[in-house]
Write a protein that binds this DNA or RNA. Structure first.
Length: 484
DNA sequence: ATGTAC
């Protein structure tokens, strides 16, 4: 079923919110909504994002609206930047609504140092982190896990890392879900997935994954910044990666199974890439448990990388690694069991966030106590060399978008197009002239990640701020980048 | 994103 949509067909509900009404297509169950400023809405007409979010709105058990964030663009089945919540009895769970890189996410660490005092150390720090953090497509690292060990990682998440000396207890409590999804069951993760993951803990991967040394350039919200431990010109370190080959294999395994069994589930979908299973079916439950296990692997992966980063800090700064403190760690490719108010009734839902970040408002019990008054810390990396944002979840986002916001700048040029149009050698020099040292795994990878291939993160963040999904707390500027 | 592919 295909209906061509133009900007003039969208109903502008608010300055940064557009709706495709449920009446637009006979199979839609709820409206589709796009968060975008006037400046960004035109981007959504360039690819299949709009028809994809309309497809999502047809899925059984979907609640309230199928939502796209301002960094949204076309993805596998569901758009990236998509949020969709489902009733646990009537609804479905879809790997395409989560993404191949299960629990791809971001963490931010902060140091006690001001940039102006250690700026001459940045190239050496960048280089040392490059040495300590294994990266690249398919690459493993020095840690080899036995099946028994990998099962521990999958079941216990960062509790395992604390026990093994890769994490402080204080790290664990400064993570979304405390670094552990309790629904995880390693027995539903295939041997092949475990094999792919066995040497990938503490590795960065490739694509848009990175470790970035930056500084706090601007503070927008003094109280929240103070609660988060941030001050002006502070040196910070951001890590972006996920569950590597393990999570990819979990997604592949269950997608294949779901596509094959759609008739058995009685599902007739507008796009096979939406392949899903009922949440209350045996297969749906198994996928949720395997996905949670892969998510735990990703939490541990970012934690072990933090440990490598702390070692690099020690080696270069001759200061203890525990000076580098975790601010927070967020998942932006995940489905979670959460309670939300729908039609003035609170109910349990499975919330899919694919390239979208949880952004719970002030006072929510799942926010670490030290941040609870300010709202959940939200970490939004921009494209390489531009800037990143720290936001705080806002109360009005809880009812609008199930407590969710954007996840990054959002790609606007395909990887192929970027490789064709960007001269990576030149880009590296340009970044260097801006005071940003880049250690790239490959020139092709660098070209794919060029700022020109992405939307303007400031426009994206201004949209979610204006829409009341999250509030701006701080702007970070990069100084050293390690690319996968 | 990912040992770009059963």
């Amino acid at each position: 079923m295909s209906v061509e949509i133009h900007v003039s067909d969208l109903i502008q509900l608010d300055r940064c919110l557009w709706e495709i009404p449920v009446s637009t297509r006979p199979d839609m169950r709820v409206p589709a909504r796009i968060y975008a400023s006037e400046a960004l809405i035109e981007d959504f007409m360039q690819d299949r994002t709009v028809s994809q979010i309309m497809n999502v709105s047809t899925l059984p058990g979907i609640e309230k609206a199928a939502i796209v964030m301002p960094d949204g663009h076309e993805g596998y089945g569901f758009p990236i930047g998509g949020v969709a919540a489902f009733d646990i009895n009537e609804g479905v769970v879809s790997p395409g609504g989560i993404g191949y890189d299960i629990n791809c996410g971001v963490r931010l660490m902060f140091t006690p140092e001001k940039y102006e005092n250690i700026r001459n150390k940045i190239p050496e720090l960048t280089h040392e982190m490059t040495r300590m953090v294994p990266r690249g497509m398919g690459r493993g690292g020095p840690i080899k896990l036995s099946t028994d060990q990998i099962n521990q990682v999958l079941m216990r998440g960062v509790e395992w890392a604390v026990e093994q000396g890769y994490a402080f207890e204080e790290d664990r409590i400064r993570m979304e879900s405390n670094g552990k999804l309790p629904d995880a069951d390693a027995s539903f993760v295939s041997e092949q997935a475990k094999k792919r993951g066995h040497d990938q803990l503490g590795t960065l991967g490739a694509g848009n994954h990175f470790v970035e040394i930056g500084r706090v350039e601007q503070i927008f919200h003094t109280d929240a910044a103070r609660a988060f431990g941030l001050f002006e010109d502070q040196v910070v370190i951001m890590i972006h990666t996920g569950s590597r080959g393990l999570g990819h294999q979990v997604a592949t395994d269950y997608l294949r199974m779901f596509v094959k069994k759609l008739p058995e589930y009685g599902l007739n979908l507008p796009d096979r890439e939406l392949a899903c299973a009922p949440i209350n079916s045996e297969d749906g439950v198994r996928y949720l448990k395997a996905m949670a296990a892969a998510a735990n692997f990703a939490f541990c992966n970012r934690q072990v990388i933090s440990w490598e980063v702390r070692k690099a800090w020690e080696n270069v700064m001759k200061s203890p690694g525990d000076q580098v403190e975790l601010l927070y760690d967020v998942a932006h490719n995940i489905a979670k069991r959460e309670r939300h108010r729908v039609n003035s009734e609170e109910k349990e839902l499975i919330v899919h966030r694919k390239g979208a970040t949880r952004a719970f408002g002030p006072g929510h019990p799942e926010i670490p106590e030290r941040y609870r008054k300010a709202g959940q810390p939200v970490l939004i990396p921009g494209s390489m060399g531009t800037g990143s944002f720290v936001l705080a979840g806002a109360e009005s986002g809880m009812n609008q978008a199930f407590g969710s916001t954007c996840h990054g700048a959002g790609r606007k040029m395909s990887r192929r197009a970027a490789k064709r149009e960007v001269d990576a050698q030149k880009l590296k020099k340009e970044l260097a002239s801006m005071g940003i040292s880049v250690e790239a795994g490959s020139f092709a990878g660098l070209a794919e990640e060029a700022p020109a291939a992405y939307k303007d993160v400031e426009l994206v963040v201004d949209t979610v701020h204006e829409a009341g999904l999250a509030s701006k707390v701080a702007l970070l500027r990069p100084a050293g980048v390690i690319k996968g």
